[in-house]
Design a binder for these strands. Sequence first.
DNA 1: GTTCCGCATGAATCGATAG
DNA 2: ACTATCGATTCATGCGGAA
Lengths: 292, 292
Amino acid sequence: MKPVKLETNIIHRGDCREILPTLPDECIDLIVTSPPYADRRKDTYGGIPPDEYVAWFLPISQELKRVLKPQGSFILNIKERVVEGERGTYVMELVLAMRKQGWLWTEEYCWHKKNSYPGKWPNRFRDAWEHCYHFTKQKQFKMFQESVMVPMGDWAEKRLKKLTKNDLVRDESRAQSGFGKRVANWIGREKVYPTNVLHLATEVTNKNHSAVFPVELPSWFIKLFTQEGDIVLDPFIGSGTTARATQNLGRKYVGIEAKTEYVTLANEELVSQRKLLEKAHDPYRAKERTQK
Amino acid sequence: MKPVKLETNIIHRGDCREILPTLPDECIDLIVTSPPYADRRKDTYGGIPPDEYVAWFLPISQELKRVLKPQGSFILNIKERVVEGERGTYVMELVLAMRKQGWLWTEEYCWHKKNSYPGKWPNRFRDAWEHCYHFTKQKQFKMFQESVMVPMGDWAEKRLKKLTKNDLVRDESRAQSGFGKRVANWIGREKVYPTNVLHLATEVTNKNHSAVFPVELPSWFIKLFTQEGDIVLDPFIGSGTTARATQNLGRKYVGIEAKTEYVTLANEELVSQRKLLEKAHDPYRAKERTQK
DNA sequence: GTTCCGCATGAATCGATAG
DNA sequence: ACTATCGATTCATGCGGAA
């Protein structure tokens, strides 16, 4: 029998194949995750071989379907590795298998990695993009397109670009005081809907975790598919990027991570970020910082 | 019995399922094409339903494999249509089926359409990218990477003026081959290799043909995979974009198109473009134009 | 307070070499 | 023969310290 209550703003320590069954049915509004790619992250998940990848993932996606609310969404960030000179087919096979499992493959977003890994090979160029598959349980699902609208013109890219701890605080304080230059720029600009191509750089500064997507990636989907107070799940949360994005945006997170160091690290970062957020919302401190 | 001789710089009028068998074996250096999408271009190919698409295309790709030289490449530009709220799976199924047919799926290039078609839907944004699958017959194939190099990012200008200590150290730690060697490669370098993401605007001028890619798209692949004098095939050539790209770059084209109007239109454009090219190569006229 | 510059590093891939 | 390891190749980004 499944538990009735869901604990939020927590990162579970363990294999998601064991943790997921302990979550209640239909309690999650959005799942955003980047599972270990085939033959990667050997230290954590044993490096799943490409030909076993689908069989490994299907039980997980089955559980994800169970815990997702009917109107929820599942964003799967993944990329096929080159296997003996060819692109591996396990990603395609996974999508086809997940449809048979009952998922609807609603859309494929393209993440353009502006700073792709360098290198040169005789038969290919640097790989600068990854898939973000959008799965749903129903044709009707929650989507808030206005929340990710971007101003027309050159400014749009910068806005999406960066939300580090410090920038976050700075933006918050300026927005509150109303004097932020950037905010002023925004006003009066024509806003447009984005496309299904996201231009974001990978995170290179995070030294503790090798496989991070930039915080803007989950942030974008969280804004698009959830409202404040909604619950976001990441079953392979690593160093906690999805949780930080979630906390930033006033949503609740549920994370799962098998590697102990990552859990510790993620929790530390989340606490420090929470403090910064609280400071930013404290009017006295915000004023203090603005005057500096 | 197959013909021995191949006629080039011609657009055949007819269904490629009938024309392709008349071409000799292994006579083509590069195939670039954008086939009719499922349920599109009903007038020409009868609007292939998504669930029949793979069966329809496989005999064609079989013939394409026959006419392609062993070291040649096949670029397939395609995008899955939305079918009842979901992305159709026929493209994935096609790739899997073509591998079984003996093709190697070497790479997937991403064409980012900078000016995507406007529109708004409740469950998705504007579609701003398409697949360009790269198939080959062998792991060894012709590729001329230098021909598509792009200007370096701004970062390089400052950085390379002064070679940092760390550049040398990192170099030494990796090989005892002498630290100056690789650094020398960088000095004076103005161009870098591109990635597998192509940023090109769609063509808006050509209203006579529904499935046009911009001439830069075939041009890029033609430069990358062929040399002057090589032969490029497009079995769904439409208004002749691939032929114009080919002619421009001093290669030879073989086109196939079922719709008579397109053939006429394409040939007219090709003739007028050829005249311009000849003028440009005529020394007297070239000088005249330069002085202007 | 900006701007500039040094610098480490990243979900990569191939081919050669070693077991 | 077949697998595992290792060196070589390459470029955009953001942080931190300096001007």
